[in-house]
Design a protein around this nucleic acid. Sequence first.
DNA 1: GGCTATCCGTTCGGTAGCGAACGCAGCTTG
DNA 2: CAAGCTGCGTTCGCTACCGAACGGATAGCC
Lengths: 237, 237
Amino acid sequence: MVFPEQNQLLNALPPAERERIFPHLRPVTLPLGTVLYESGDTQRYIYFPIDAIVSLLYVLRNGASAEIAVVGKDGAIGIALFMGGATTTNRAIVQSAGCAYRLTRKRIEQEFGRHGEMLHVLLRYTQALITQMAQTAVCNRHHSVDQQLCRWLLLSLDRLTGNKLVMTQELIANMLGVRREGVTEAAGKLQKAGVIEYRRGKITVLDRARLESMSCECYDVVRKETDRLFPLPAAAA
Amino acid sequence: MVFPEQNQLLNALPPAERERIFPHLRPVTLPLGTVLYESGDTQRYIYFPIDAIVSLLYVLRNGASAEIAVVGKDGAIGIALFMGGATTTNRAIVQSAGCAYRLTRKRIEQEFGRHGEMLHVLLRYTQALITQMAQTAVCNRHHSVDQQLCRWLLLSLDRLTGNKLVMTQELIANMLGVRREGVTEAAGKLQKAGVIEYRRGKITVLDRARLESMSCECYDVVRKETDRLFPLPAAAA
DNA sequence: GGCTATCCGTTCGGTAGCGAACGCAGCTTG
DNA sequence: CAAGCTGCGTTCGCTACCGAACGGATAGCC
């Protein structure tokens, strides 16, 4: 079973707001490859993933692409709805199948207009998202494919349960904005080192600690900043 | 003379809010190289540039750096103050000397809490900033130094009056996150082509149209999105 | 059981950008 | 005027990554 509280943003709401909002949440299942919105689309819903992972992907005119940010149970898709723009220049595509709750544009605008905790939660999340995007920009500039693959695997791992990912090298390459061969080579090294096991689109992470040590600092920075903005209930109490 | 209205965000405010806010604005001059805040600093002010240009720069542990976004009279520095985080993981550094107006943290929080037009303007600007950061990430991945230099010159040019920049190749290299030699080479090509004139830290843009055509699509995308979010008074009327 | 699509491994030549190093011209300073 | 610093041009070897192409293995499907 899935519950709205499994999304960390919804979970951060006080009881009164939960009661008000949760009845309007609608659960949806998101198959792999679903496009939640396309660049320039007027977005209709805001999505709160539970066990799905969604990538914000930018696609250039020549077809080349790069991932801007990853969103899972830690966040929401459809920021532009309450930022005032209604559209963005990127694409939101389901990178790992799963389910999510969604809210209509009208509802989220109403809720945002109340200036309750939902507003503050969403704004704080937006800042976390900005941090992730900034880090992605720097990472694209300065770090090797090897390092970036580690970062990417960790980001995905954090948003799933278990240590298995379902993801072809071709798709990872699209996300990282590199060639498939580059991913093959980097993944090969990780496999030889015994850090992961790769088999026809199924990745098993065997040694997470090593993966973290082989990643660039970018993963850690984003993670620490997210933890700062959204302290775990235990830490907050 | 400088006036608050020269900043496009302040200019977008209705008369009533201007009357309320403008008395609290304090003009400051920002010499080249001034650091408005450092990564992790609790930010004290929000700045609205008039003729200064500020770069949001990310500095890696090994000293390498990359620009995340450029802010001039089209925006504000200190987003984190109203997003709820108070700090960010980047540095804000003055890239072109000039002046700005600033507001204390307390004032901007008060103003934000009123839920007036200022809130909406700042959120819309935040979305424009997100667009610019996303584009920077993709640009870092896919485009050549030559193209990125053009993009960068255009971004700076838009935030200044006239066609001259004061900026060494060394500094540009830091912003773009590339070697100084790379900038020298790219600038050399532009100079040979008669597009710019470069002389000891002083750049004169001779042929802006050519510069635009030699730039990657990134400049255009960001510009169009900014225009969409902040239509000029003429277009709005 | 055979066919086919998908997914991954490997190779090869080409190139953009890196790191390091050196030199030179033009401002500034004493 | 000499000295020095700053900003720019140039060079060389090196590496990571690209583009294109091919081949093998696996899984699904009829």
